[in-house]
């Protein structure tokens, strides 16, 4: 069956829009940028990081990816800069900085 939801934008006509607003395949909000909501930005200090992964569990925005049981750098596209990660880190391995820095 045809996949639904890609390429939908404000120009879509009633004939083209997906039936009942159905969207297939999940996870399409990845295309939506929420990083521009951010006032301050978490910076990963890898040298301090013990890979405890608490930060990634506490991120509301799925912005701290894990690969092979280790966190990698932030995905800033969706990070809203809440600062929870800095606060939960037991090892001072995350630092919030102003966006302009």
């Amino acid at each position: 069956m045809r996949q639904l939801g890609d390429g939908i934008n404000a120009k879509v006509t009633w004939k083209e829009i997906t039936l009942a607003g159905i969207v297939t395949d999940g996870g399409k909000s990845k295309d939506f940028e929420t990083g521009d909501w951010r006032n301050s930005k978490p910076v990963w200090l890898a040298e301090n990081c013990k890979q405890c992964l608490i930060c990634t569990a506490f991120c509301p925005d799925s912005s701290i990816p894990v690969k092979d049981k280790k966190r990698v750098d932030f995905e800033y596209k969706h990070c809203k800069g809440c600062g929870i990660c800095e606060k939960v880190c037991p090892f001072n391995a995350i630092e919030m900085k102003g966006e302009e820095e």
Binding site: G27, S29, T34, R38, C59, P60, D61, H78, C79
Partner: peptide
């Protein structure tokens, strides 16, 4: 639970769902 949702920054519901 992908990123790019419109929950507020720091939202507990997002942490819950993930």
């Amino acid at each position: 639970f992908a990123g790019g949702h419109r929950l507020c920054a720091g939202c507990g519901a997002g942490v819950m769902a993930r």
